[in-house]
Structures are given as C-alpha cells and as structure tokens.
Amino acid sequence: MSRGLRIAFFGSSLVSAYWNGAATYYRGLIRALHARGHRVTFYEPDAYGRQEHRDLDDPDWARVVVYSAHGTDGLEACLEDAWGSDVVVKASGVGTFDAFLEARVLELRRSGTQVVFWDVDAPATLERVAKDAHDLFRPLIPRYDHILTYGGGAPVVNAYRELGARRCVPIYNALDPDTHHPVPPEARFAGDLCFLGNRLPDREARVEDFFLKAAALLPQARMLLGGSGWEQRVLPGNVRRLGHVYTQDHNALNCSARAVLNIHRDSMARFGFSPATRVFEAAGAGACLITDAFEGVEQFLEPGREVLVARSGEEVAEHVQRLTDTEARRLGQAALRRVLAEHTYAHRAVQVEAELGYRAAGAEVLAPGGT
C-alpha cells in the first residue's frame, strides 16, 4: 500500500471561523484528504483574534501549527518544518506576510515537491492584479506548479492562464456531511428568512438589495441577520441581529428558518461559477435555499427544483411570500440529495489527487496533472 502525501498548508485558520470565511472549505477538504491517507500540517498565524475565538480544538485529522504574527521568525521556522513535503500550499488571504510567503514557499520546490497557490478568493486576486502591473504576486504566478481556486470556472481559469499560470483548476466548495447535516429546529433561530455573512465592503450593497430591501417589502416577515460587523447598521424593524454565529450552530440556524439566503460578494458575482460555502452548508442541512443569481448556478443545483434564484430584493420577497412549509421542505430535500450525490468534499479530494498526479496504488507524485 502506497503512502499518502505529506502536505504543508499555509492558510488563514483551520481552528477558527472568526472573520475567516474559508474555514469550512479548509476543514472539509483537509478532512477528506486525511480520510484518503494524506497527512496535512496546517500553518496559521495568531492574528485577528482568531485564536481567542476558536470553534475547533486541534483535530486528529490534521496537525495545526500556530505561529506569531509579529515578525517572520515563527514563519521561518514553519517554512523549515515544511521542507521536504510532497506538496506545499500557500493559500490566498492568510492575512499576515502574504507577499513574503508567496515568494518564500517557491524556495521549497525541488524534485518530488510540488508548490501550489490555492486561491480562496480568485475574483478579488485577479481584479487586484489586473489593476496593478507592479503587483508582487503577478510575476510569481508562472512559477507555481498549480493554481487551484475556490471557484470561478472558465473566466478565472482563462484569466490565470493569461497571466502565465502553468495549470489552473477550480476546486469548488462542497459539503462535509459529518459537519453539516439536518438537525431539529431551534426556537431561537425561528424565522421566515435568514442571512449569515460578515459585513464586508464588497458585499454590503448586495445585502442592502437582496436582504434588507426584501425585509422592508415584507414588514410582517421575521428576518434573521447573522455575522460580525452589523452592530452599527440601521436595519428594518423586522430584522433581528444574531451577531457572530459559531459553526456549531450553523446546522440549527439553517434548519430553523423557513428559507436561507445566500448573497455573493461583488467580485464573485461578476466572475460567476463561485457558489459560496453557505450554499453547501444550507443544502447539506436540507434547508430551503434562495440565492442571488450567478452564472453557472445550474452546475451545482437546479433552479426551481433544488434552489430558488433571485435577481433582486423584490424577487427574494416574492419567493418568501409564496413559499409554504411543504414547498420549503421539498426544495431542501432535493438540494440535500443532489449535494450528497455530487458535491461532497470526498468528491473534491479525488479531484485534488488527480490534479497533483497522485495514485493510491502507484507512484505517489507524478508530473503535475499526470495520471
């Protein structure tokens, strides 16, 4: 039996979802890779209060190394620890010393070691690079063995190829059925529509349009708003703030409201083919999902049968007004069946292995993209 890959992964945080939208994605993928025999060490900075707001103890499916965000000494020790790994991953948006890491991980390349840039916010990265010809990441792109992305489809792949990427493959969000699944509803999360998302500059206008406008149009509806940063925002009277909702409460939230709303950030909506983590969290809980329209939605869920799609706050309000409990359950169950059949992190882990050229019964690492 061949050994699994030793993977060194530099990311924002595995153990905390606090101001860290990639946490669910990281956890699902890394758990699935571990289940297939690979060994992952996740290196994360002690930054942004994430260690104080942990929602996960150090897991048995990954080794977690936390380093100081003050100076690069701790990071240099992590890079030394990662030396000799089969795969070294630098994720986007670590939040501290990103430019330093993007260059330094490339120094770990050698025969038998592949270096990957894993872009968990490709639309934002590509828009930033396009605006600045002197962006420090731009000349590094052709040096990575692989660019893997959280989403984006052909628009993202083509944009990275134009920047010289050797390979660019989307590894989409997915469902971890052990983490997100149906649970009994809880009265504290009862409502007609809930939206969960941190207040971010490139999302707020869309939240205003798709959620707050819908709330204003349905003054009798019970609306729930979860996420950090909304404390000072003036809201319609029928919107109840939940504040930061810890990941262990996501299932209860998704299973308690009649419908769950997904709203993309501006750049993700423009590029399309980028279903947010919330899409699969909600579908995995059997929730009735309403999403803002994005190109490629039918690749993941069938509109009208597995998901409701809205192009404005008015359409969100229309969906909520027409939605019966019976129809909500039917849509939620259809979505759950679809994601279990096609969109779990176990499916994505197989895709990652194929891209890295890993074969369980043969040589561990082949040429990039080999079979």
Rank of each mutant, 00 (worst) to 15 (best):
D121G: 10
R27E: 10
G304D: 05
P142E: 11
R258M: 09
E315F: 05
V339K: 07
V352C: 00
K213C: 11
T324Y: 01
N254K: 14
V116C: 04
G243S: 08
G11H: 00
P201G: 02
G227Q: 06
G84N: 09
P123F: 01
R338Q: 15
R270T: 09
L148R: 11
V87R: 03
Q114K: 14
V320K: 08
L225K: 03
D132W: 02
V129G: 09
L218F: 11
S16L: 05
E342Q: 07
A367V: 15
R50C: 02
G49K: 01
H319F: 03
R203M: 11
L235E: 06
R222P: 03
V316E: 12
A310S: 03
T277M: 15
L140I: 02
R329S: 09
G151R: 05
F137P: 08
R109H: 08
Y144F: 13
G95K: 00
G284M: 13
V320P: 14
A252E: 04
L212R: 04
A32T: 09
V234E: 12
R329V: 05
L106Q: 04
A335L: 02
L196C: 02
G284T: 04
G229I: 07
P368H: 03
P123W: 04
S85F: 11
R166T: 09
G74R: 03
I7W: 10
P303C: 06
G71Y: 05
D73G: 06
D86V: 10
V309C: 06
S267P: 06
T179Y: 12
L308S: 10
H319C: 14
R138G: 03
S85M: 12
I141S: 03
V115K: 07
E353M: 03
G197M: 00
P368Y: 02
Q232A: 15
A287R: 08
E80A: 13
R31H: 14
T149K: 05
